[in-house]
Design a protein around this nucleic acid. Sequence first.
DNA 1: GTTGTTATAGCACGGGCTTGCTAAATTAAT
DNA 2: ATTAATTTAGCAAGCCCGTGCTATAACAAC
Lengths: 208, 208
Amino acid sequence: MPRVVVAETRRQDVAQAVLRIVGREGLESASLRNVAQEAGLVIGSVRHYFASHTELMIFTMEELRRRIDGRIRSHAEQLLDPDAGIDRRARTEELFAEFLPLDETRREEAVVWLAFVTAARTRPEFRPCARRMHEEARELIGRVLLEAQRSGGIPGDLDIALETQRLAALLDGLTLGGVLHPDLMPPEDARAILHRHLRALAAGQEPA
Amino acid sequence: MPRVVVAETRRQDVAQAVLRIVGREGLESASLRNVAQEAGLVIGSVRHYFASHTELMIFTMEELRRRIDGRIRSHAEQLLDPDAGIDRRARTEELFAEFLPLDETRREEAVVWLAFVTAARTRPEFRPCARRMHEEARELIGRVLLEAQRSGGIPGDLDIALETQRLAALLDGLTLGGVLHPDLMPPEDARAILHRHLRALAAGQEPA
DNA sequence: GTTGTTATAGCACGGGCTTGCTAAATTAAT
DNA sequence: ATTAATTTAGCAAGCCCGTGCTATAACAAC
C-alpha cells in the first residue's frame, strides 16, 4: 500500500544537507527550516523522517562518524591485515594522513567534525558519538604504532601508550590549524610536519 | 557632573560574566538576557556599556586574549630577558605548559578559547582576534625554540620553523583533548607528553 | 537646591526557532 | 476504482532573541 519505501536513503539525503549547511555556515544555522530548504523539502517532510531536531543532528553526526571511519579503516585493513608490501613506512604515513584535511573532501569532514565535537562539550546528546570517535581514533593509532614496533619500524623501548597520545594530539592540532587557519597551515605543511614526526619516531631516543 | 565613572571596570565585569556563561553553557547561551542576569544587571544596563551584542562578544574575546597573553608573557620575559638561571630546560617546559589546561584557571580559559576560535570560522567579527592569538602564540614558541637552539639546548640542524609548527600543533591538540575529554587526557598525561616531546627535541635527529 | 550627565529599568516590536496539529496529495495493493 | 498507508504541505502556538524606545533614579558640579 505505501509508496516505495526508501526511508533510510531519504534520511541520508537530509543528513547530507545538514553536513553541507554546517560546513558552510556552522551548526547554529542547521535549523529545521534551513535544512529543509537545503534538501529541497518542507519542514513537515523532514520532521516525518526525524522525530525531532535533536534526532536529526545525532543521526547526522553518526553519519559523519561512519563516513570518516570507513575512509580510514579501508586504509587500515590494507596495512594491518596482510603481511603487507615493502613500503610499510609510506603506507603508515598515508594512513595517518587520512586524519588530516589534506584535500577538499577531508577538509569538509574536518570542519564539520570540529563543529560537532566542540558542541558536544555543552550538548550531552552529542557526547556518546564524540567519545566514540575519539576512542576509536586512538585505538587505531595505537594498533598501528604497536604493529610498527613489532615489525621493527620504530624502536622497542618507546612507550606506545604515550606515543599514541602524542601522535593523536599532533593530528588533532594539525587538523585544528588546517580548519581554522588554512592559509597558515596549508596541506603541504601539515604533511611535512607529519612526515617529520614519524621520522623522529622511527629514529627514536631514550624514553625518560 | 556624571556619577563616578568606572566604565572600563564595568565593562570588564560584564565580560567576566560572559566568560563564565560561555565556560558553563557555551557561546550560544551568552545572550544579552543571560549575561545581564549573570552580571546582576538588566538588559538596558548592559546595553548602556556595549552598543550591541556583537560588540560585547568581541570585547570579551579580546579580554580573554589579554588575559592569556599576560599570563604567558610573564613567563616568557622571565626566560628570555636575563641571561637566565641554570635550569633553562625546566623553565622552558614551564612556559610551554602555560598553554595547556593543567589547572582550573587554565582549563576555563582553554574552554572559552576553543569556543571563540571555532566560532571565528563562521563569524567574521571574531577572526581578527582569533588570528592574532594564533600568530602570537606561534611567534612566541618560535622565539623560544630559536633561543634554545642558540644556547645549545637543542641541535643546530633542526628546522625551527617546522618544529615551531609541530610543537604548536601538539599544544593545540593536547588542549583540545583536555577540554573535550578531560578524563582521557588528564593534566598529568598532557604534562608527560609535553615533557617527552621536549626531550625528543633536545635529543634531536637528522632533519630530512 | 538646581542642573545636566550618566546609569538603571523596562516595555514593545519584529523575527527566528521548534513543535503539535490538521488537511491534502500521492501511490501501491486490493 | 476503491482503499489505506505514506508523504507532503502548511498553519498556529509558544518561546527566546536583539534592538529601539521612553521614563525614572543617581549623583557631581554649580
